[in-house]
Design a protein around this nucleic acid. Structure first.
Lengths: 401, 401
DNA sequence: GCCTATATAGTGACTTCCCCAACAAATAGG
DNA sequence: CCTATTTGTTGGGGAAGTCACTATATAGGC
């Protein structure tokens, strides 16, 4: 490691703590980073002169001694635009350093096939007022997008998004040109970003190893390994929807037989809950939940059945990844109260070599917005990782919205 | 990161290159580390004075310019003892920094239940002559052990080793006291170490993401993620033998139904190849291979069947981990020529969202010794990771064997 | 209200480590 | 034998973190 990387690394460490944990006193920073007081002073000073953090006089005084000023992130120093392209809706949000959420907007969409161009234009229209209402003097540091599909991170190329009907779409560059953003448009898989969001702002804060399961039409997993997103060699890790779990099962839309999502996904739910074929799309989960609320036995049994299959697959994931936490998002978040018993039952059916009490299965803390929040966090990461070079660079090609 | 960690980190980087790639010229080191010539000179000098590396005059002269001396690891500066506790054999080896193998000894064992104490004593007896024949002036830097079981790394506690009939064994400390070694006895899972070995010395050199499959009685996976062993939160990642793959399948020894190893493990092989029940243990694979060599159709069909199941599970792992390489060890190494077609067939049956040509399935390069070599590498890692503090510390409580 | 103990910030000297530039050394090729 | 090229060596310089000392601000006891 070169000498200048040391400084960058330490700046990033300090900014990351402040970004993730909220305002911290300088002495907190000394303790948690292990760096010297003088060093922290220098680092905070530099971050402060970059405009990324602000020092406030200490508020609460906890015991004797000179009070330590609080170091807090300045949200407007790095604002980002977060986008979500999901099966049933698109959403936009603006957020700032420190996790501050300025605004959020979600619009339902029918499950028709929208072309990439239409979708990108719709997103830009949604984003316009949000960008315009950002505080003056803000600095747009980047754009992040969550897509329900298989994405190459390096350039935001969408290999495949079956539920959007997309195939080989240059989404990254399309978003960049439509939004008038010159660089730093990052695109990632919905589940991966859900995992990131839950790890940073949701139920997974402080948990080093977790798996987020995004159940929409299919099933996707986002994996946090040792506190960092685990993407695999090309970014396709966690594509678990079509893992084989039941060779004697039903035929999947993908052509194979017995894929996990065929047994535990939305279509399996509709079938197990005996919904009429007329109910489709978002209405599947809505109807199932409504009926479950009334205590309808047939529905509850159907939920339990897909819960069991979900649990079996979760057991497999636990054996493979040894996580501390499984976070259920998407439709599993919506149905969690009726689902979690059978999920645990299914998971316990798979023999675990690790003591079972080491894993917890919980409901997503951020709910349907997890991927969107993850997109914001991803965009903010560029600033946090390299504060010195990222600060002050606005990403807009031309001023104005 | 504190200031002194920088030096340690750079020393480790240089020593690691030399350890893994063999003798390198100083200018190679400058290029690959990105550090300055002067810095490399200083680092090499320090490693040299610690006795860990040696400089030799440049041999081959490749073009004009002043020849760059070669920096090579000194094996005797950090020798290690590697142990393997496997289902059908135990093995010991001595190796030195740079991957130099001094000696190796493997002894077959019947598949009876040996107590931990017996086994440890046998290992110590095997190790004695190897330790005695190490070059004088050697420095025993540590001991590494590979076990076919679920191991807690921190203290070498064996939770479960079904094929050894063990349960909650303090293997680490038992080995330490039996060998007269005061510290640095590390114990790990066989498959994890197989993966490490293949990554460092086998077919996976230079491959950042690979999965090693160890097929003995059961199936275990060792995962290298981004060049580093992926252990999971508690070290139990890769325990894939009992992942569910066929709910309509046979009952597994573990009590569950349709575990992967029930469909693709050794017992499944014996059944599929229609071996008489009298053939057990090591003889299963031997017999199957012998019959396959003669072209026996029934045997070949049986191998193909378990190959297909193996491939299906591999497809699942590819979807979950997105590796670049799958390395087949254990019985799959032995049967590879008759197996690999059906494995690929099975893997292709699972739909991959990543382009399939990005994954390769290959035969282990180190064969049956992969876990043993991995144990050596694990023990050497302590020295490589922290050269300054590790050098010169011998691990033997008392001199002599 | 004042004093003391405690905890933390500020400051400047110091050390370590890496980088750089100039020079020296060793080789290939003409 | 000379030149171009590459690399080791050396000493100066700068950046970053550490340390010791001093200054400051609070809590709590008298």
């Amino acid at each position: 490691m070169a000498a200048d990387e040391l400084r960058r690394h330490n700046l990033a460490t300090v900014l990351e703590r402040v970004h993730l944990s909220g305002p911290l006193s300088r002495s907190d920073l000394t303790v948690t980073t292990g760096l010297n007081r003088s060093t922290i002073a220098g680092l905070v000073g530099e971050l402060s002169s970059l405009g990324l953090v602000e020092e406030h006089p200490a508020v609460r005084s906890a015991g004797p001694g000179r009070p330590s000023p609080l170091v807090g992130a300045r949200p407007e120093s790095a604002a980002v635009l977060a986008l979500e392209l999901s099966v049933d809706s698109i959403a936009v949000a603006t957020a700032g350093l420190g996790g501050h959420l300025y605004n959020k907007l979600r619009v339902a969409r029918p499950r028709e096939r929208f072309s990439p161009r239409e979708t990108v234009q719709d997103l830009a229209k949604l984003a316009e007022p949000l960008l315009a209402s950002l505080p003056s003097g803000h600095n747009l540091a980047g754009v992040g997008a969550a897509v329900a599909g298989v994405v190459r991170r390096s350039d935001g190329f969408v290999h495949l998004a079956p539920n959007l009907g997309w195939h080989n779409v240059q989404l990254g560059s399309m978003l960049g040109s439509e939004l008038g953003v010159s660089e730093r448009v990052s695109v990632a898989n919905e589940a991966d970003l859900g995992a990131l969001a839950e790890h940073r702002r949701g139920v997974g804060v402080g948990v080093g190893h977790l798996i987020y399961l995004s159940g929409e039409v299919g099933i996707g997993a986002g994996i946090i390994y040792d506190g960092k997103p685990m993407l695999g060699s090309a970014g396709y890790a966690g594509e678990v929807g079509h893992t084989l779990i039941n060779p004697a099962g039903r035929r999947c839309r993908c052509g194979a037989t017995g894929c996990w999502e065929t047994e535990a996904g939305e279509m399996a739910l509709a079938r197990a809950a005996r919904l009429p074929a007329s109910i489709t799309g978002l209405d599947v989960v809505r109807t199932v939940r409504d009926r479950a609320e009334t205590g309808d036995q047939r529905t509850l049994a159907g939920i339990a059945e897909i819960g069991r299959w979900l649990g079996l697959g979760i057991g497999n994931l636990i054996n493979a990844f040894n996580p501390e936490l499984i976070v259920l998002g998407g439709i599993y978040h919506a149905l969690y109260p009726y689902l979690h018993h059978s999920v645990l039952e299914g998971a316990e059916q798979v023999r675990l070599d690790a003591p079972a009490e080491m894993v917890e299965v919980v409901r997503s803390g951020l709910g349907p917005d997890a991927p969107l929040m993850g997109a914001a966090e991803m965009a903010l990461s560029a600033v946090v990782t390299d504060p010195a070079s990222a600060a002050g660079h606005s990403v807009l090609a031309a001023p104005g919205g």
